[in-house]
Design a protein around this nucleic acid. Structure first.
Length: 781
DNA sequence: CAGTGAGCGAGCTTCCGCTTGACTT
């Protein structure tokens, strides 16, 4: 008999809490939700108040059995899942599934994993809050309705296997709209005026002093006129103002800010960051990594203070409590911080150490004093003019938190500030060295990175800390967006200078707009987005989530019945689904007519085919079947021209015969290829698939044969299709299109047929699994 | 240094939020 059974959500948490509570308590974990709507079925009875059908997923069955057994044996069961909507629902599902006795079941909550917090929680148990549970059911059911009614619309209207949902579709919309913004952006230029004066530093040495004119000129004429009129002007320091400013540290990490900073400072992807954070959490180094709270426990505040006092002294310490501003934050956990703040470093892999270091610094800095900066603004008067030159200097008089940590930002500002100004006096006459007018252009907004998209989603209240990384993966896996680089474009800009009495006017060239590893919408992403925007604007509204969250809150407060709320939503939503499914349109969704093929007179169009974007010549109604071709790489449905499409449709083209079989060039999923009977050879990148000759092709085929020859270690006459091959990971077996690992200790070249078949037999189960996994990873790249 | 390159057949795909495993081909 166990006296007390405590159930929490995470095993790492269970371990820690177990230590605090001692032997009268057995602490187990539910590993998140133990019950959900059926995976493959709609599982909602619309006609019966949206009654959900729940099931225990296969991978949770044995866990539930264990929990049930433990609950049966205990006097009291303490349901200690998180204090938010989802946590409450987990407790309720546990209560239902384990058939707990209400009299011997207690619901407790704590926001921080400290002994005090837990003992306190145990002193004040409560009942399961059924209103909060209903709010979760409403959330769950709404997401299922939206996802499982919209996705099939896409399968029918756009392409099979696509998906839509309250969160992912809006994430894609952000990326598509940003791209459109950039496309329609026209940059304007203006002239930025800078001057260099000569002044003396403290040692009497002549040093340059850079200043910028407070206004810019819109036209070249104005800029030029200004420059020339400065030739005989006098420059005098008119004003020196000094102002102390403070800079405060950023709050401790939440999931989203950790993802952003790890991306900027360490170059990690969102999912990498989460994987590493998970392992730090499991090793007990950091607190929970999926959180929207910036709150630190009193215990942590205390240890931060002692650590700072020990390391840096009293004037560096300043205890701060941060308040969460994020929309819809549920604050079931603390901010992400080191478990033991006194540990500045940890043991582990390099990447673990780096992330821990980042978390440590951010946490410590958040409890440190402001940095104090003396900001000096020097105004320089130009004789006979109203415009002024400005010099700003920022001298750090006390580094404060900057000693430990400086937050990074995506955009770098153009303005330059000097740290320490040379000594200057009021009314001082300055010697002009040169004045330069540089043509500057306004910049289009930058494309999203994984992390900046997460940040935007958080700002809109879309998604949760536990889903940011998976959502970013999903929209890439569905091929709605793609991570890629954008090449910069060249442009010339004008630069004029006045050096002494010499006026100079030159044009220089610069590259602009280059971006690395940004999220770009694909053709499919654009078509799906436009389609959903047209027929389901409410779901795509950036405020949709915020609006339904408000209603969930009302359910949670007991002011509204969840099924009534759902009925109201469904009444507006479902008819749109029906209507959209039955719309007959002349063209397929997203189809774009490019024109007419001058040779055949047939229409040429681009559309999303069963396997992605395709060029089509001719129409389905024709007697003659239409011809299809892949879009060339880097071409997009929105921009491809008739000429480019006609050029692309020339593939596949036949080159001639070789060894009695035809050789042709085509373009496939993996780029252009040469086909000879059943073998395919990729066309090398530097070769133009339109210009490949028969001779080129034969050469490539022979090269591939030679390479394949080298790769074969052994074949068997008795068994066709069985080969011992040399691969990237060493020797392996290939049989009937599947690969098998050769157990260590066997010499590959000496394997007999029997050996091979035994290996294959023993790995059959595994073999299928492996091919599956590889497919999944390949899609990601 | 493996594997891929389809196009009416048949049946499947899909949501969001909680949580951690397997797997070294």
């Amino acid at each position: 008999m166990i006296k007390n059974l405590v159930i929490v959500e995470s095993p790492a948490k269970a371990k820690t809490i177990g230590k605090f509570l001692g032997k009268d308590y057995k602490v187990m974990s539910s590993y998140g939700h133990i019950r959900d709507l059926k995976k493959k079925e709609f599982s909602i009875d619309i006609d019966d108040n949206f009654k959900p059908t729940y099931e225990i997923p296969a991978d949770k069955v044995s866990l539930v059995k264990e929990l049930k057994a433990a609950a049966k044996e205990s006097e009291t069961v303490w349901l200690a899942s998180d204090e938010d909507r989802e946590g409450e629902a987990i407790s309720w599902h546990l209560f239902e599934v384990l058939h707990l006795n209400p009299e011997h079941t207690k619901r407790i909550v704590f926001h921080e994993i400290t002994k005090n917090a837990i003992l306190k929680a145990i002193e004040s148990p409560r009942q399961i809050d059924i209103n909060l549970v209903d709010a979760q059911q409403a959330r769950r059911v709404l997401d299922r309705i939206v996802g499982f009614e919209l996705s099939p619309v896409l399968w029918k209207k756009v392409k099979p296997s696509l998906s839509a949902g309250r969160v992912q579709s809006v994430a894609v919309r952000l990326v598509v709209e940003r791209e459109r913004e950039i496309e329609s952006f026209t940059n304007e230029s203006s002239y930025r005026i800078t001057a260099v004066f000569e002044v003396q530093d403290t040692e009497g040495k002549t040093v340059p002093l850079k200043a910028e004119l407070e206004r810019r000129f819109e036209t070249k004429e104005e800029a030029k006129e200004f420059l020339l009129s400065c030739e005989n002007a006098e420059f005098k320091i008119e004003d020196i103002t000094q102002k102390p400013i403070h800079r405060s540290p950023a709050p401790p990490f939440t999931t989203s800010t950790l993802q952003q900073e790890a991306a900027r400072k360490l170059g990690y992807t969102v999912s990498q960051t989460m994987r590493i954070a998970q392992s730090l959490y499991e090793s007990g180094y950091i607190t929970y990594m999926r959180t929207d709270s910036v709150n630190l426990s009193t215990l942590a505040l205390g240890t931060c203070k002692t650590t700072i006092l020990d390391m840096m002294g009293e004037k560096y310490a300043k205890t701060r409590q941060y308040a969460t501003k994020t929309k819809g934050a549920q604050e079931a956990h603390e901010a992400i911080r080191p478990t033991y703040v006194s540990n500045q470093t940890i043991d582990g892999k390099a990447q673990d150490k780096k992330l821990y270091d980042l978390i440590w610094k951010r946490t410590i800095a958040s409890q440190m004093a402001d940095a104090e900066i003396e900001k000096t603004t020097v105004t320089i008067n130009i004789s006979g003019k109203t415009e002024k030159f400005i010099v700003t200097g920022e001298e750090i008089t006390f580094d404060g938190f900057l000693r430990v940590y400086k937050e990074s930002f995506d955009e770098e500002s153009e303005q330059e500030t000097v740290n320490l100004l040379p000594p200057l006096t009021l009314n001082e006459q300055l010697k002009r060295k040169e004045i330069v007018a540089t043509q500057r252009f306004t910049q289009h907004p930058s494309r999203y990175t994984e992390a900046s998209l997460v940040r935007k989603m958080e700002e809109l209240g879309i998604g949760r800390p536990s889903t940011y990384a998976p959502t970013i993966s999903t929209i890439q896996q569905r091929e709605y967006v793609q991570k890629g680089n954008v090449e910069g474009q060249k442009r010339t800009y004008n630069i004029m200078s006045l050096k002494g009495t010499k006026f100079n006017d030159v044009n220089k060239s610069e590259t602009y707009g280059a971006e690395k590893s940004k999220l770009l919408p694909t053709d499919i992403g654009i078509v799906v987005n436009d389609f959903l925007m047209k027929f389901f604007p409410e779901i795509m509204d950036y405020n949709f989530t915020a609006n339904v969250e408000q209603q969930f809150d009302e359910v949670a407060e007991g002011k509204e019945d969840w099924s009534e709320m759902m009925a109201h939503f469904y009444k507006g939503f479902h008819p749109l689904v029906d209507k959209t499914l039955h719309i007959k349109e002349e063209h397929k969704v997203g189809e774009r007519m490019l024109g007419v093929d001058p040779v055949s007179g047939k229409p040429v169009s681009v559309k999303i085919g069963r396997y992605g974007p395709v060029i089509q010549v001719g129409s389905a109604e024709d007697k003659e079947k239409p011809r299809f071709a892949q879009l060339p790489k880097d071409a997009s449905m929105d921009h491809i021209t008739l000429e480019e499409a006609l050029n692309a449709i020339k593939l596949p083209r036949t080159l001639g015969d070789f060894e009695g079989k035809e050789i042709s060039v085509g373009r496939g999923k993996f780029g252009p290829y040469i086909r000879h009977d059943k073998t395919f050879v990729s066309v090398p990148k530097e070769m133009d698939p339109m210009a490949v000759t028969l001779e080129d092709a034969i050469k490539l085929i022979e090269e591939k044969r030679a390479a394949a020859e080298k790769q074969i270690i052994k074949t068997f006459e008795e068994k066709e299709g069985l080969q011992v091959l040399n691969g990237r990971y060493g020797p392996y077996l290939s049989y009937e299109k599947k690969n098998y690992k050769i157990p260590s200790g066997k010499e590959p070249s000496e394997l007999t047929l029997e050996d091979c078949m035994a290996i294959i037999e023993s790995q059959k189960e595994k073999g299928t699994k492996t091919t599956h996994r590889r497919k999944a990873t390949a899609r990601k790249g």
